[in-house]
């Protein structure tokens, strides 16, 4: 077992365990913190794939900014067991069945995919994930979509400011 495989399995177990804990945790603040752990594990996977830029941006944007806002909202709402509406047992059962079906579809999809069969973990050797190559690709081959998406972000930001001003 090489160090890469070891790291892969470690990160996978961490990601799956944390993801399960997000759902299972009773306390919403704990759920958010477990979700942050999931993001860290996924960033680790990105690094194994040699996609360093994606890894660090995942941490900066998701773990560092979006989850802080999540935490803000959840801390201020002060959710706890007594204020939570009681869910119908039938609803829970329906949720379990729907989720189970979805899981079955996903598993069968992965099992049938030919590209995924009998392939051991390999370390990513691609260079596209390095920031220099990614930047070149974005500003040469995909410059129009890139700029359009940045305009989209700007308009979203202006919209948020306008809504904030109204309140």
């Amino acid at each position: 077992m090489s160090i890469t495989q070891f790291l892969f399995y470690f990160l996978t177990v961490l990601a799956l365990f944390s993801a399960v804990m997000v759902v299972v945790s009773k306390n919403p603040v704990h759920s958010v913190l477990w979700l942050i752990a999931v993001f860290f594990a996924i960033s680790g996977h990105y690094i194994l794939l040699n996609a360093q830029f994606l890894a660090i941006v995942n941490i900066i944007v998701y773990a560092g900014a979006i989850m802080v806002l999540f935490l803000f909202v959840i801390m201020l709402m002060n959710l706890n067991a007594s204020t939570e509406p009681q869910k119908n047992n039938w609803l829970k059962l329906a949720g379990i069945i729907a989720g189970g079906c979805f899981l079955m579809v996903l598993v069968s999809l992965v099992k049938q995919a030919n590209e995924l069969n009998n392939i051991a973990v390999t370390m990513g050797t691609g260079e596209i994930g390095l920031i220099k190559n990614l930047g070149k690709a974005l500003f040469n081959d995909f410059v129009v979509p890139f700029e359009i998406s940045s305009v989209l972000f700007l308009s979203a930001m202006v919209g948020a400011v306008v809504i904030g001003k109204k309140a």
Partner: peptide, 22 residues
Amino acid sequence: DINIGILYIFGVVSLGVYGMMI
């Protein structure tokens, strides 16, 4: 010596708020 050194610092700085918030 990673080639995303500054972004790494930026990421760690953005994680700094968790200690305080939690």
